[in-house]
Structure formats: structure tokens, C-alpha cells
Design a protein around this nucleic acid. Sequence first.
DNA 1: AGCCAATTTAGAATTGTTCTAAATCTTGAC
DNA 2: GTCAAGATTTAGAACAATTCTAAATTGGCT
Lengths: 142, 142
Amino acid sequence: MKTRSPQQDEQHLTEQLGATGLRLTPQRQQVYDVLRHKRDHPTAEEVFIRAKKAMPEISHATVYNCLDALVKSGLARQVTLDRGATRFCPNMIEHGHFHCDVCATVFDVDLPEQAMKLPKGFKADHFDIAIHGVCADCAKKK
Amino acid sequence: MKTRSPQQDEQHLTEQLGATGLRLTPQRQQVYDVLRHKRDHPTAEEVFIRAKKAMPEISHATVYNCLDALVKSGLARQVTLDRGATRFCPNMIEHGHFHCDVCATVFDVDLPEQAMKLPKGFKADHFDIAIHGVCADCAKKK
DNA sequence: AGCCAATTTAGAATTGTTCTAAATCTTGAC
DNA sequence: GTCAAGATTTAGAACAATTCTAAATTGGCT
């Protein structure tokens, strides 16, 4: 896992947001910290709850706004698994998500090096790969 | 595209539903027909509107129930693209979905024959592959 | 200092989905 | 055939996730 000093982190945020025409605000910083702190693919609601601990006045709408801002500037990714709330992930390395149907944990998984081959003329921007199944721990227990 | 006679179709539905302990009802038949008729990955709401044309008394909840029943018995798949309504697809051959960010059309795409390699002990049940980008037509126009 | 645009806030509104309870339909046992 | 048990449908309420709105706040920039 890549680590950065708080200073590097802040600079990185400012740059990435700036490139999209957005500012680094304390709220965006906070939301980003929440994502980096515990990488368990929280929903917007969960991010809200965690951010509130450090910043009690933060509002619901702001968390959505911040998450959008982070996604737009390439600092976080949305993870969509089935119906239900969207989850967020600060790991920007190309990867997929494995969802355990038993314990509901979400794992990051590497993608096959080979790119998906698309029909002629199609341009891929990003991939969203979700795999549903049973994780090693749950498979063992059963 | 595989085609079946109405009789074969009905038998196929009865069998697949039956194997999951469910019945073939006129509503389920209708919802399945809607999916097979125009394979543009409609949302539940769109399925509802189309089904209503042939069966005006069908209710919202029934459409959800029918779609669930079809998914559970392996007659249709859910397609989740970003936030927003879940879409449905009667193509049960393993495939991914390409979503054009310009015209919003959803295309079925083949998957690389090679399976995703998972960490030891993980058992995959099914894959959900969404690719976001620009389709050939839209890329040309621009 | 003062202005303009970006951002945040609380809460209302909207959207998509699920739940509930009553009515209806099927199926299998007799 | 008839009846009971269970599955399914229905309308509408309830719920959850997200977006919108309008007003207040903040942060540069001249």
C-alpha cells in the first residue's frame, strides 16, 4: 500500500482537485482521510458517519459532494455491487472487486493483464469488475 | 441470437422456474417476453411500462417480483451500471456490458476466454463486468 | 475591504425498491 | 369435483439512497 506524508497527501489532493477545477476544502480532505484510513469500501452513509466523528457539522449532502469531487478528480472510485448503496474506494490501481455472498466483505483483486477486447472503434474509459462468490474463509468454515 | 418457438419458450420457462420452486404465471411470461422482445437492457420501470401495454393491470410490485423470479431461476441477469436503476438482460451467455457515456446505449461484449485468477480458496459464482467509454458511433461523430 | 464564485448546510423532494395485507389463483389431497 | 394450503398478484404505503434547493458561509482576487 502506498503511503504518503500528510504534506504530500495534501499536495496530491490539491493538485488532483485543481486539475478538475475544484478546491481542496477541509471537508474534502476529511472525506478522503476516511477513505484512506479504513479501506473497507464504505457506502456514502458509512463515510458520513465516520467523517462526522472528526467533523460533527458535516452534512449529508457535503459527503456526496465530496465523494463526487474525489471521483471526478481521480482520487477515488465508485464501486457498484448489485442493488443497494454505492461504495467508495481510494485504490486507484486498476483492480476488480470480489464480493463474498456469505460474509459480505469486499476484496480487491488483480485484473488479468490482458485487456478486454472490444468491438472496433469502441474506446474504454474505465472498467468496473465485480465478482460474486464465496471468500476463502467462508468456504473453509462451511 | 438463439430463437425458440413460443411452445419451446414456454416449456423452457416452466422448467427453469420449476427447478427453483416457482411457477410460470402469465405475468412472468409477459415480463420475460418484454425482455426477449427488445434487448436494450431496460430498467424495472421500463419493463413495467412495456408490460403494461399488453397487460394493463400488471402492478409495479409484480414486475419486481417477476424480474426477481427470472433472475433466481437463471432466465435473466441483473446489470448494474453506476448509481441509478438496475437493468435486466435475458442474454445468459457469459458476457460483459459496455456503457457508452455519450449516447447511454448498453452493448453486450464478449469476455476474454481466460478466467480471472482469484486468491486461493475463493470461489466465483458469477461475474459482473461493466466497461464505461465511448461507442464506435459516438467516437466517429465527435 | 469588497466582490464573485465555489462550497457547505439543512431539509425537502425525488427516485428506485421493498414491504404489507388483502384478494385471487393453483395445485394436490381427498 | 371440492376444499384447504400455499403461491402469486395487487395497490399503496414505507423505506433507503440520492439529488435538489435556497440560503448562509467561505475563499481567493482585485
